[in-house]
Design a protein around this nucleic acid. Structure first.
Lengths: 135, 135
DNA sequence: CAGAATCCATCGAGATACTG
DNA sequence: CAGTATCTCGATGGATTCTG
């Protein structure tokens, strides 16, 4: 296999030869948290249509207002999601994926399909392992 | 884009039509934590050669014994890493990627290369966003 | 409606000390 | 050498209340 350099998001003194290999927090900061990918996915699912805050909250099972707000803020900060605020009464806010956001989602397809294919095997491995340990 | 179904690792009542879309914890449980991918990467970097616990600890910058132990246990449990224990004095333990483990690492290349290409832009977006907010 | 602000329980993870 | 066992602290995430 071609030597794989794993991306990082930390600021650190440059090592010397190009990118420093190795991530600091899983794949990349926010990608590992509980809601970020779900938010991205629901936005992409809506296609060109923008989604309102309440629509997202309704669609994403179990997310709280606070968590949705935080996830959206971080995504907006990174430039993965665009936020459109309409100062009406009551206020209306719409969200949509940026090109960068949908690009990232596409880049996730590899690992996602791998997981779809292998999750059952992983779960089986876990069962076997757990049964063997506790005795 | 083809409708993308995001894999989950949770057990939950089946929704109805095949896989339930949406992950429960980022991409998949352990993938989002701080050390797992780094351990995988270092093992793959060693190629066919197995690595000892101490070698891994030396190579992975900043990891503690405890965190390395936990990461390896979880990977072993999932069937992504194989553990070879030699009951000598002093004890020797060697680790290597399983086929499944290297498969998963290959599946991560998409998101990894995307991150390599886009990290600087993300960081720039964050700077702009942060400067605009605090005033 | 779309949040901001608190408070609080839990968990990840680091540091340290000990052991077969 | 390759772990365990504790302890601790900070971050994450949930529930709840308040507001422009």
């Amino acid at each position: 296999m071609e030597e794989m350099v794993v991306a990082t998001s930390d600021e650190q003194p440059e090592g010397g030869r190009g990118f420093r290999p190795l991530p600091s927090n899983g794949i990349c900061g926010r990608l590992g948290d509980k809601w970020t990918v779900q938010v991205l996915w629901h936005l992409s699912r809506a296609g060109a249509e923008r989604l309102r805050f309440s629509a997202l909250k309704k669609e994403i099972d179990g997310i709280t207002q606070r968590m949705l707000t935080l996830a959206l803020r971080n995504l907006e900060r990174d430039g993965l999601v665009a936020r459109y605020y309409f100062p009406e009464v009551p206020p209306r806010v719409e969200y949509e994926l940026t090109d960068m956001g949908s690009g990232m989602l596409r880049a996730l397809e590899g690992i996602n399909s791998w997981l779809m294919e292998n999750l059952s095997r992983i779960e089986e491995n876990r069962r076997v392992y757990d049964d063997a340990e506790q005795r």
